[in-house]
Amino acid sequence: MTLQTLTKPWEPMSYGFLDGSAKREIRRKMIKAIAVPGCQMPYASREVPMARGWGTGGLQVSLTLVNPAMRVKVIDQGADDSVNAASIRRFIARVAGTPTTMDTLEADLIQSRHRIPEEVLREDQVLVLQVPNPEPLRPVQPNMSIARQMHADADYGRMWLQLYEQIVRSGRVMQGASYPSLVHGRHVMTPSPIPRWDVPKLHMAKHLTILSAGREKRIFAVPPFTRVEPLVFSDVPYKVEDHAGLTCHRSGTRGFFMNEIPQDDGSSVFEVSDSEWGVKAIRRRDGEEVALGETWYKNGKMPS
C-alpha cells in the first residue's frame, strides 16, 4: 500500500461539511433506526460548527442526506424565520449548495425543531426532527444504562404509573409536549418536543421521519405507515391542545396550532404557529395565486 491510495484530492471542506467517514457512520445507523422503528440507536455524533443542543443531531442527518438537487426547509417552533432556523438553513445552503424553500409543499427535506407542518407530508419527503432528550424514560429513570435495559425488557410499567399518578393528582395527563408514544407496538419513543397536536401526524404517515439527538448521540426513526400510539388509558382518551376553535389574528386561518401572544390589556391574541401556512393564507387573501396543500387537521379535527 502507498500513501497515494490513502489520500484524496485536497478540498477546503468536505461537501456538506461532514467527512465521508462521519456520513457513512450516520448512514449505517439510520439503516438500523429505520429497521427498528422508535428504537434509539447510538451514534458517534461529530462536533459541527454549532453548539450542542442547537440542532446538531438534526443537522448531521440533513448534511448526510443533502445533495445539490434537494430543496431544504428549516423551521423552529413552526417558523422559518426564527433566528436559529435561519442560521441552520444558511449553513446547509453554504456547505451543500442546496436550494432552500419555506413552502412545505416544495421541500424535499424538512429539518424542524418542535413542530410538524400543518400540510400533509408526501411519501417522497423526509422530516428530520431535532431532539434535545431522546429518552422518554428519563423522567422516571435518569440513568441511561438502566433506561436502555428497560427498553430491552419492554418494561414500561413506571411510565404508565407516572401517567396514572398525573390523572389521579390533576384529573388529566399533564404531559405537555414530547408525549411518549408506542411505536410499532414495541418501543416507547419521545416524538421530540412537538405539541400533542402533532403526534397523530406521525401515525401511519406517508413520509419518513428521522429523529436525531446530537448531544445525546442517539438516532431513531418512524418509517412511513408505522403505528405511533400515544400512551393513554382506554377510558382517558388522548387530548390534543384545545386550539381547534382559535383564529389567527393575522391570517384569519382557523383550526391549527396557535402561538398565544399576551396583550397589554390582559387578554391574548393568537397567531398560527406554522408561519409559512399563515403567510400563504395572507397571500391568498390578498388575491395571489398560492398553492395550499391538504392539511392533516380539517376544521380543527384530525380525521381518524
Binding site: M13, Y15, G16, G20, K23, V66, N67, P68, R94, G97
Partner: peptide, 12 residues
Amino acid sequence: QPVPSDFEARCN
C-alpha cells in the same frame, strides 16, 4: 458553490 465529487454524489 460547493459541488459533490462523483464519488460523493454516487454514495449519496
